[in-house]
Design a protein around this nucleic acid. Structure first.
Lengths: 129, 129
DNA sequence: CCGATTTTGACAACGGTTTTCATTCTGGAG
DNA sequence: CTCCAGAATGAAAACCGTTGTCAAAATCGG
């Protein structure tokens, strides 16, 4: 039964930004779901393995997950204040990464790129307050 | 006394790629140094705070450190096989990150970029073996 | 040398993640 | 429906890197 897995994915699909496993677990429990933390982790791993969600590590070592709109390669622009996330394509970076790798004779280039900033709403709040 | 701190930095300076705290600790002990793991962590934090070393998280949540040649902003091209690291400047990425942020109205843009690949030596080994 | 301050490091605590293992659920066979 | 095998589940323990605690040791100023 992948019932729980679907439930976990559902949370992610309806979330704006990245969510942590514990976060998702807490929400499911407060929604009344009978699910264990273990199962949340397992569902998350399964989804990540299936390429249905993205995973990345925060600076404090927590894994965060997000259901991405597309299955294609892209990066994220994340608001450091509210967590709002925008998916961005970056042909320029892809080319840059390839070029940099090639320049040093490296092959099979991959890369991780994350852009952080303060979103318009949060900027407004910040400058107002 | 920053004796230990210097010792820790020394290890990093003479290392090719990124090293983990535990890794550094192990090496110092096997070199005969009388030092505690706690102190290694503290030294690493101090060095990172002083901007003398770079820190990043591996995919499995471990923090790894590296003494960088320059104090200016740059990124890393890391061999996924042997860990060899090349510091690369990427004006193009900087501009791209700024542009992407601005395009969505985000301010105070920062970014993390890491490029991974297989270095020439390791490529040779791989194709040979 | 003496006291104040800092540094050190063994050990415990922490927190997120993973493993363990007994229980529950599922689906097919009889 | 009952029985069984295999998969899924989840509570609790184990793990592991990291951080905090606190007493002992080193260092500095006088």
């Amino acid at each position: 039964m992948t019932n729980r897995r679907d439930a976990v994915r559902d949370i992610l699909v309806h979330s704006e930004g990245f969510r942590s496993a514990q976060d998702i677990y807490a929400q499911m429990r407060s929604d009344g779901a009978k699910i264990g933390l273990t199962t949340v982790y397992r569902a998350l791993q399964a989804l990540a393995d299936a390429g249905q969600i993205d995973v990345l590590r925060t600076d404090d070592g927590e894994s965060v997950y997000r259901a991405c709109a597309t299955g294609t390669h892209h990066h994220h622009l994340v608001c450091r204040r509210c967590g709002r996330t925008v998916e961005v394509a970056g042909p320029a970076v892809e080319r840059w990464a390839e070029a940099v790798g090639a320049e040093h004779g490296f092959t099979a280039i991959t890369h991780t790129v994350e852009v952080f900033g303060t979103c318009p709403s949060c900027s407004a709040i910040a400058s107002a307050g």
